[in-house]
Design a protein around this nucleic acid. Sequence first.
DNA 1: AGCCTTCGGAGATACGTTTCTCCAAGAGTG
DNA 2: CACTCTTGGAGAAACGTATCTCCGAAGGCT
Lengths: 385, 385
Amino acid sequence: MTAAANQSGRRPTTSRRLERAGIRDVAAAAGVSITTVSDALNGKGRLPDETRSRVREVAERLGYRPSAAARTLRTGRSGLIGLTVTTYGEEPFTFTEFAYFAEMARAATSAALGRGYALVVLPASSRHDVWGNIALDGTVVIDPPDQDPLVSELYRSGVPVVSDGKPGNCPVTAWVDNDHEAAVLGILDHLSEAGARRIGLLTGTSTDTYTRLSTEAYLGWCAKVGQEPVYEAYPAHDPAAGAVAADRLLARPDRPDAVYGLFDPNGTDLLAAARRYGLRVPDDLLLVCCSESDVYATTEPPITTLSLKPRKIGTTVVNLLIDAIEGVDSGTGVDIARLFPPRFRTAGNGPPPGTLMPTELIVRASSQRRSPRTTVSPPRPPGEV
Amino acid sequence: MTAAANQSGRRPTTSRRLERAGIRDVAAAAGVSITTVSDALNGKGRLPDETRSRVREVAERLGYRPSAAARTLRTGRSGLIGLTVTTYGEEPFTFTEFAYFAEMARAATSAALGRGYALVVLPASSRHDVWGNIALDGTVVIDPPDQDPLVSELYRSGVPVVSDGKPGNCPVTAWVDNDHEAAVLGILDHLSEAGARRIGLLTGTSTDTYTRLSTEAYLGWCAKVGQEPVYEAYPAHDPAAGAVAADRLLARPDRPDAVYGLFDPNGTDLLAAARRYGLRVPDDLLLVCCSESDVYATTEPPITTLSLKPRKIGTTVVNLLIDAIEGVDSGTGVDIARLFPPRFRTAGNGPPPGTLMPTELIVRASSQRRSPRTTVSPPRPPGEV
DNA sequence: AGCCTTCGGAGATACGTTTCTCCAAGAGTG
DNA sequence: CACTCTTGGAGAAACGTATCTCCGAAGGCT
């Protein structure tokens, strides 16, 4: 043990105020160099176990906490992942608006934490003051609009981005989405089989992928089977507008005898509207809506819902992103490891890799005229994976 | 413009790889010193507007983005606030479990962003690997348990902590909570006035402040008015257990003719249980539950709910915390500015400052035997503020 | 005896800012 | 003319870590 080591390694600075212990203090107290301290604490280098444990003990005694900022500066890794959900209303987040986002965010947070990362909630607007002040290893973007300037900016900054929702035209590192077309077609088939003659759609006016693909699938199906489309669109972020749209749909002269609602509250709204018009569900009207909420298991009658499996999506998105950050394929089942390491795609080599996740149709009483038994079945095999 | 400025200011390092432009590059390109660049970009120092704008333009052209890590290291501020919600189940967050948390988190995020901070979602367990790797300016803790080791550790680290929920015995900088006692007493009075003779309680088994204070208020009220307490407790994080407990409560020989449920799903569960026992609401059974969900506006019948105003709480908590961080009283209505600057309370000077926020009783059909009109009224004046 | 290898660890540098200190040159002032 | 101010800006020291390079010493081998 070097005897002269109790001299603080700091250069003769102004005055030692009551600051937190740094790695130098630990080194001095343990009579070793800061290299040794760093190695001992991080499990690197070649050191005898005795030195390692001694250093650890001294560090503990001094209450030493490594500075995250310094570590980030040095290593270039912050362990932070941005999470932003595109908003349609004025409030910056839609977490609570639909159960989908809540579930998805929860799973994403959990997955990130499991791999040693933490999620930072960020606004969809590219507010420079906040985005620029945070060292991000990567970002998860939920439902980016067609030409998202935020995503482009992140791309320019060299931050890998994985999106939930197939990106319209912005350079993401990878994306994950449901097979919305297959899901909608599955539902339409299901309703047809249950005896529906004219299936209506409650859809949204925004241009996100989900709304667009679903609506297109519906229109395509109509064209194929020769049914006149019957749908109402409304701004999905406005809860009141949903009830009105549901009412409008059932008030039409060409009233549908089955309806699929794209958004979470549609089930309740449609049920209420049906009641107002004296329509019995499922006898006069078959109902399905897309929702993650289990309140539909206890409504009168229980309503068949399409689950987008947000947990699975959130987990996958985060794992994909962290794989990209670390340049590893941790085996999420998606083989895109090769595409990542070269500077997170240097642009120009084809579309970004995407993954389609399966959906799940939870069949309840509202969509079957015969047996009211509740069963669960996947609608169609997913297109990819 | 200095002609010799195109020489990179870097010392002859190994090799200039394709790295992001730093402040040195901007300085070199603009023919000024890095001091000038820093001052120009941050609006500090004394510079003629012409220099300022020229530097800004060069920075823009080079796509310069200041390194958040370096800035954090230098200034000691990260602009990051930790958000952790105490969990009872195995999953790390309860965001979605109750609408309360979702609303509260949303408001908190919004408030933080509004003041230039971002929220980092963190686990309630003191996982060193993740907590230690993040430079936090402060932390919001939701519902800390009695002797939260996490809070103690944060305190030792010098990180200011503001909690939602009056802390049992841990050193927080400040706290915010509802006046739970007043809220419960208000509800019990309300039910009494509606004709209830025996009021039951559906409560939880955990030891958090909310459950404890509410239950104590109920028991105190019972003692005062001479009613035998009638209650069932269950682990609040288990949704299935709630339904069972509701059933148990209504199956008792001393069945109550009015029930207050402390948790969000209790309304639905109690309604279902009442149906099973052939009890009409509100005729045979008066119902109130604590919930932020508006599904209770459309149930059959609509259920009276107590709102804890999570938006207001989330906003207040964050503003209090940021005030503490910045050592400012931005006028949140709480006068505790003086207590903050001295090292975030140096311990030993009395209990931490707290704020009680009012609750709101949203009266619906389930708790009145006369008029089924829906009205809104605050139950009692809050104890403080 | 000379040489190679491994062990244990020290030194120094770089990460990219912010900011404190200081200086030169011109402008006013008596 | 000698002086003080003010303006505009440069230099350099931190911030606290990780890591690359290098080095002495102690064996082991031929």
